[in-house]
Simulated scan of single mutants.
Amino acid sequence: MTTPFPARRPLLELLGILLLAATACWAGHIRSDLFIEPGKQFVLGGEQQGTFKVAAYNKGTVPVTIKERPRGGGIFGKATLAPGKHATLSFGAGSAALLLNPSAQQANLDLRVTGDTNLRMDYQPSLSR
C-alpha cells in the first residue's frame, strides 16, 4: 500500500516524536497513538538514568514485537502483541524498548510510558523481519 504523500512521511514521524517529547514534559508520562510503518521499528529510550514502563495496546491489525536492548548490549525478546491485546512491560535503566513491525502493513499502538520519561525516540529500519 502506497501513501499518497510519501515526501511528508519523515515530517509526520518528526512531528510524532516532538509530540511525544512535549507530552512527557507536561504530564510526567508519555501518551501516544503510535504508528509504525512496515519493516520499521520505533526505538524508545537508551542511555536514560532510570527505569520505565510501557503499557501498550495493539489497536492495529498486525502483531508488533517488543524487545529490550539493555545498556550493556544484546537484544532480548519481551512480547509479541497481537491485535487487540494489552501488555505492560518494564525496561531497565539505560535500556531501549524496540517496537518492531515486521509485517507488510502499518502497525498502530496506543502507548502510555511512565517512570523515567527523559527518553530518546526514533524510527529505524527493522533489523528483525
Rank of each mutant, 00 (worst) to 15 (best):
Y57E: 03
L81V: 13
S128E: 06
F35P: 00
I66S: 00
S95C: 07
T51C: 11
E13C: 08
T65R: 12
D116E: 08
A82K: 07
D110S: 11
A7H: 14
P63F: 02
I66D: 00
L109T: 02
E47S: 14
R112T: 08
P83G: 09
S103E: 10
H29E: 09
S128K: 00
L127K: 11
P70Y: 03
P4I: 13
E13K: 13
N108D: 06
V64F: 01
R71I: 09
L98S: 02
P38N: 11
F91Q: 04
A55W: 05
L20M: 15
A107P: 08
F5C: 08
T114G: 03
T23S: 11
S90N: 09
L109F: 05
G77Q: 05
G74Y: 03
F35N: 05
V54R: 01
G115I: 05
D116F: 10
L34R: 02
H86D: 06
R112C: 06
F91D: 04
Q106G: 13
G94M: 12
A79T: 14
T61I: 09
T3K: 12
P4W: 10
D33A: 12
F35H: 11
T61L: 11
N58Y: 05
I36H: 00
S32N: 04
G39F: 07
H86P: 01
Y123W: 13
A79L: 04
V62T: 11
S32M: 01
